[in-house]
């Protein structure tokens, strides 16, 4: 699948921001006043910034509000609702903490719940697609949620729990990569079932419909990035897991904590790029590619 920068930025940064808001929501002794303001501002900048950047890849962004209508069937529509619910609830919670010095724990918990629901709905946009076997698994949701709460923990300065969570997220990531490599073959979809000609003999794509490229090939048969996929996985894993863990084990968590966070975010961005670049859509079969 084509790794559109706007979607990579959206899913990474909104996940991170919602992760931060989640931890602020369930905090028993949350910050108040200007400290709280700073934390919530970062959370909102990331979450809202990510959501806004997701509209950049739309063909008709001026109609984006219509995406709220089909929540009964569409995960994309559910995501829109969940995001609004999370941001409104957390906004109210933040307002009371920052300006009124009131900690309404239940409101924070509800907001935190909606934050996780939002990340889950984002993940389901991809995980629901049978046409992309690499994504079509519950592990995709686990990965998105784990990365969100791990990044949020780092961002909110929770060293110990952050350390544990990036290890967990790293484990899910490794498992997702490993099982993902065979999922296309296991899906049972190949050129034989795509053309129905398998009963006659071995099918080979002989001639594409046209000499040039097209929307389908550009969007869904992105083969350029797969060449260095293995190296990029190593880089992603080092940046999102190994380097932050080492940095967090050092003293002075304030300085090294920031570096650990930046390294983790860079790693997640690489991993998210691979998430799209490595994903093979079944339509590629018709073009003799994957």
């Amino acid at each position: 699948m084509h790794p559109a920068p706007s979607i990579i930025a959206f899913s990474t940064f909104s996940g991170l921001g919602l992760g931060l808001l989640f931890w602020l929501g369930i905090d028993q002794t949350p910050p108040t006043g200007w400290v709280a303001f700073a934390f919530f501002a970062i959370g909102y900048a990331l979450a809202v910034g990510g959501l806004v950047s997701s509209t950049f890849h739309l063909g008709r962004p001026e109609r984006a509000l219509k995406a709220f209508t089909q929540w009964q069937t569409s995960w994309l529509s559910r995501e829109a609702w969940a995001a609004v619910a999370a941001l409104v609830t957390m906004g109210l919670y933040a307002f009371m903490l920052v300006f009124l010095n009131i900690h309404l724990a239940i409101l924070g918990q509800i907001g935190a719940f909606f934050c996780l629901v939002t990340v889950y709905t984002t993940s389901m946009i991809y995980a629901q697609l049978k046409t992309v076997p690499r994504w079509n698994t519950g592990l995709t949701s686990a990965l998105f949620i784990a990365l969100s709460v791990a990044g949020g923990a780092l961002l909110s300065g929770r060293v110990t729990i952050g350390l544990i969570l990036i290890l967990v997220a790293g484990g899910i990531q490794a498992l997702w990569w490993k099982t993902g490599d065979t999922r296309f073959a296991k899906s049972g979809t190949d050129l034989k079932t795509a053309t129905g000609l398998g009963s006659i003999g071995t099918v080979r794509a002989f001639e594409p419909p046209h000499t040039g490229t097209n929307y389908l090939v550009n969007e869904m048969v992105y083969t350029v990035g797969r060449r260095h996929a293995l190296k990029l996985r190593m880089i992603a894993f080092l940046l999102m897991l190994v380097v932050p863990v080492l940095l967090l084990l050092l003293p002075y968590p304030h300085i090294f904590g920031v570096l650990a966070l930046l390294s983790h975010i860079a790693g997640v961005l690489v991993s998210r790029w691979l998430f799209f670049a490595e994903a093979e859509h079944v339509v590629g079969l018709y073009y003799g590619m994957r």
């Binding site: 699948m1 890849h57 739309l58 063909g59 008709r60 962004p61 109609r63 984006a64 219509k66 995406a67 569409s74 994309l76 946009i125 629901q128 697609l129 049978k130 046409t131 992309v132 979809t189 795509a194 097209n214 929307y215 389908l216 969007e219 869904m220 859509h281 079944v282 339509v283 018709y286």
Partner: peptide
Amino acid sequence: KDCIGCGLCAWACPYGARELDKAEGVM
């Protein structure tokens, strides 16, 4: 008139039956 050109339907189709029009921004 309602299409926002998000492209998700083209992703969901296994047959490559949907194409986003570059000029119009709709499916």
